[in-house]
Nucleic acid binder design. Structure first.
Lengths: 339, 339
DNA sequence: ACTATTTACGCAAACGATGTAGTAATATTA
DNA sequence: TAATATTACTACATCGTTTGCGTAAATAGT
């Protein structure tokens, strides 16, 4: 029942604790015959080192934390998938923490992680993270952070993202090519860099096409789905409504679909929609949804790989680096001009 | 930079290490004045106990593991959401492990967890878990398991599920009421209890309505999406195809939709579909998808609550208990007889 | 005033693994 | 052959916390 420890193993083998320990770690100080004997007995008795003892002694947790706003979200779920894969390959464990877009919760979580419980943190900040002192404080404790998707550009470290600016341009260009004259941008908050980039792409492309950029066409949505519903409903009610919508995140596109149902607005006849999304069922929606799809799995995988590249070398300092993976545009019915 | 420890704190306060430790844990052995002084300094110096040291000493990890087949799955993502919430409330940490429906990986993960890294495990077994020795072995090590959704009935412990049998009946009954004469059941593997129950409900209801139960109408799907696609395509090709489909899990319904697109089969005119699903966009699909929706968040939450009920009391033995939360039937277009 | 009890603290031994410094015994070299 | 190096092991301190036990001083009881 109780787990075997080195002491018991040593007694049975009639060796000292340190000999057994070294034999298991394949130290050159131990003779081959003894090594084999120890290894065999260890396997037989199902010995595995106590992670707390080695963690304490070696100051290594063999654990990373993933801090994300949500997990019930296709993008983050896929990213976690990629992270977990690499962690398993590196014999690491993955702790998961959800902020639910609450910056106070994010701060609390980082505080909790400061005491060397983890060797590194992979994170996507909340939509409200406009202040990074809790993150730089955390780095000060000597634990590396790698950002993915929602980065914090003030923090010096590696960041894995997609080409948000270019994708913003492409999505907007696509809507314009499909005869949209008045495109609204649905933003998730205002603070995080990813939103700034997507919005910049949107604004740039409008200007390039000599289209007006109107502040009232940039809708700042939030974490409350009902409020978002109301905001979008307000946008789409009345005469002066846009004829194109660029949703910066999946859930805002879904809400837009729901609003359109209620208001009896036809997609794509009355309004065209495109959004950033990893929705599996995008092509099965009515109408099928045009998306900019991020390589979520690979983003997570890459972020983890970068982290382990440094952890392997026992480097806690990760220099600034921007790794950009390309998103792909999937044109479907929701954004197409019907000919 | 380096984390403060008790020794440093004690030196600054000119107290012994044990006094400081006891003061922080609010021991009755320490005077109130000293307690306040210690607490203030600890806060000032941002002291947090080293989790490895306390874990080692107290033989408590303050961590639970969640072992699930996938995370990029609405059901499991929501369940994890519920688990994480309760864990945070109990000041616990959550490790996540994905089996990807691979029983060998499941065994490996359990092996890794045997050494007291976690105080308990919440799990949903793989679709291939037909043998439970790795799970009973694990229990023998004194670490409790609580199952949710995909349980292993041979293992004595608490299990949180939905009313799969009743839901199987209800879904089948609904299809029959909508004029289906030949209903196929899409199973995910064959081994796990949840499938047996859903299938039993399906079979019972067929019998009750004097309908034949044909083995070839029970399709044993697997983890490979392409193979599933082929299986379903085969089922729906040719003349002798069913007029109703009961998919036991979400992804099989999605695949069915895709097959129907390819084969130009109209849902619900040619074939009606219902499935177990937590898909957010079920109502936006074309046609909207009828679902049996499990209270995924609450299932995760409840499983975690049960676990902590025992962990709080330092009980590692959890007696058999079946907690059943009700699923709800959402009738939409995919299963309705058009009048 | 003298013992009995309580209060408030310190000492030191765990928890289990690791790694440095030592030590016999054997092997190598000049 | 004596000095040196190598081999194969053991002893012990250490990581940071926790906790049982000991103890001096203060308080209470008779």
């Amino acid at each position: 029942m109780a787990a075997v420890n080195l002491k018991q193993l040593a007694k049975i083998l009639d060796l000292s604790i340190s000999t057994v320990s070294k034999a298991l770690r394949d130290s050159h100080e131990i003779g081959d015959a003894t090594k084999l004997r120890v290894l065999a007995k260890a396997k037989e008795m199902d010995y595995t080192p106590n992670p707390f003892a080695s963690g304490l002694r070696r100051n290594k947790s063999k654990t990373i934390a993933v801090v994300v706003p949500e997990v019930a979200n296709n993008y983050f779920a896929l990213a976690i998938n990629g992270i977990e894969r690499i962690a398993q390959e590196n014999d690491y464990h993955v702790l998961i923490y959800l902020t639910h877009e609450d910056i106070e919760k994010e701060k609390g979580i980082m505080k909790h992680l400061e005491n060397k419980r983890v060797d590194g943190v992979l994170m996507s900040v909340t939509m409200n993270t406009n202040n990074q002192t809790h993150l730089s404080d955390f780095q000060q404790k000597g634990i590396p952070i790698v950002f993915f998707d929602r980065t914090c550009h003030e923090i010096e470290t590696a960041k894995v993202t997609t080409d948000d600016y270019i994708s913003g341009i492409n999505a907007t260009k696509h809507l314009i090519e499909n005869e949209c004259k008045d495109i609204a941008f649905l933003s998730l908050g205002d603070d995080i860099s990813i939103m700034q980039k997507r919005k910049s792409g949107y604004l740039e492309e409008l200007l390039k096409n000599n289209m007006k950029t109107k502040p009232e066409r940039i809708i700042k949505c939030g974490n409350d789905d009902e409020m978002n519903y109301d905001l979008i409903k307000k946008l789409l009610s009345g005469k002066n409504k846009p004829d194109g919508i660029f949703a910066s995140v999946e859930k805002l596109a879904i809400t837009t679909y729901q609003v359109c149902r209620e208001l009896n607005i036809n997609i794509p006849n009355d309004i065209k929609i495109i959004c950033f999304s990893n929705l599996e069922t995008a092509s099965l929606l009515s109408p099928s949804l045009s998306t900019i799809t991020q390589p979520a799995y690979n983003i997570g995988k890459t972020a983890a790989e970068v982290m382990f590249k440094y952890l392997d070398k026992n480097k806690t300092y990760i220099p600034n680096e921007n790794i950009i993976l390309q998103s792909t545009l999937h044109i479907r019915e929701s954004s197409q001009q019907i000919v």
